[in-house]
């Protein structure tokens, strides 16, 4: 009898505990944005001395939006804007969101360091390598450019669930998710780094931070938008001044509009926007211009919901422009 009473008491207690609200900020989403959000979360929790708990998950941009539109998370990290399907899912669940660009990432195309011939590539050349019709056909470097040697091309790229893959295909091939299938795909960028360093004919792409940590083992390709234009190497400056095109992209936070009413989420977001520029540099990402952060803070304060994209991916949008746009739901 006594044992039963204890058991019942335990159960009630655990139920009560479950029902009680924690001062918890839940974030999930892109692995590209993760380093920045993690850095902010770390410093924020240190500042608050543990009074507010923050969890940051890595489910990929798509996986993050799935949870976000079910109302499981307060904030979603995204390396591409929200797409139509996800907008519909959020709308169906009655979830409104504030879209905030928080940094730039430069997608970097990399080669084996001993590759001397392809130091500069045009978007058209990259397209010839990556478009779906190249599958099984474009297998050697001289098929892309006759000046290049008769050497097999080995391709490495981000996995199909990542926002990085979506953006790369959108910017290079012209259609999101449209790519040849015969390349080594991995969500783990270290696998790609290893692959490219082992093969002289290798070509791969991933976020700038992985290149920045491995500059001795890898060589970045200067990207020329059109034939005849000069190639531009990815760097903090070329991303910030907008010359590294079309592979530099803004990355985003999506904040559940309802969560903003919770003081802990509001405080965290204010801290995030105030420190993103400084911390972006620390995690090898490129911060937005100050003006853009100011505009983002204003949008956040005004609870401007919806996306500036309308579910259609775009390449080469300026962040300031984006923040001014009318939000679509």
């Amino acid at each position: 009898m006594f044992k039963k009473a204890i058991l019942a008491a335990c159960l009630t207690l655990s139920m009560a505990a479950a029902a009680q609200a924690n001062t918890l900020v839940k974030i999930d989403g892109s692995s590209t944005v993760y380093p920045l959000t993690e850095a902010v979360a770390e410093d924020f929790q240190k500042m608050k001395k543990g009074a507010i708990k923050v969890t940051v998950g890595i489910s990929g941009t798509g996986g993050g939006f799935k949870k976000f539109c079910r109302g499981e998370t307060d904030i979603s990290d995204a390396s591409r804007p929200i797409v139509k399907k996800e907008m519909e899912a959020c709308a169906a669940a009655g979830i409104k969101y504030i879209e905030l660009p928080i940094a730039y990432d430069a997608l970097t195309v990399v080669l084996h360091p001993q590759n001397k011939f392809a130091s500069t590539m045009t978007v058209a050349e990259l397209k010839a390598i990556w478009e779906p019709t190249a599958q099984g056909k474009i297998m050697k470097w001289n098929q892309v450019n006759p000046a290049w040697p008769d050497m097999p091309i080995k391709l490495f790229g981000a996995g199909a669930d990542s926002g990085t893959f979506d953006y790369f295909t959108e910017a290079i091939v012209g259609k999101s998710k449209s790519s040849r299938g015969d390349f080594t795909a991995s969500e783990d960028d270290n696998v790609l780094v290893q692959g490219v360093t082992r093969d002289k004919g290798a070509l791969g792409f991933f976020g700038y931070s992985y290149y920045a940590e491995n500059t001795k083992k890898l060589k970045a390709v200067a990207i020329a938008e059109k034939a005849g234009k000069p190639g531009v190497l990815p760097s903090f400056d070329t991303v910030k001044n907008g010359t590294y095109q079309p592979l530099s992209r803004p990355v985003f936070l999506y904040v559940n509009a309802k969560s903003v009413d919770k003081p802990e989420v509001k405080e965290f977001m204010e801290y995030y926007l105030a420190n993103a520029g400084k911390l972006a540099k620390a995690v090898k990402m490129v911060g937005l211009p100050d003006k853009a952060y100011k505009q983002a803070v204003a949008n956040f304060k005004a609870k401007k919901t919806g996306t500036g994209f309308g579910g259609v991916p775009e390449v080469g949008v300026s962040v300031e422009d984006l923040l001014q746009r009318e939000g679509k739901h």
């Binding site: 999930d28 993760y34 993690e38 979360a41 770390e42 929790q45 543990g50 708990k53 923050v54 969890t55 940051v56 998950g57 890595i58 489910s59 949870k67």
Partner: peptide, 9 residues
Amino acid sequence: IGALTFIAF
């Protein structure tokens, strides 16, 4: 089950 997470508490 979704535990790939940064937890500092």
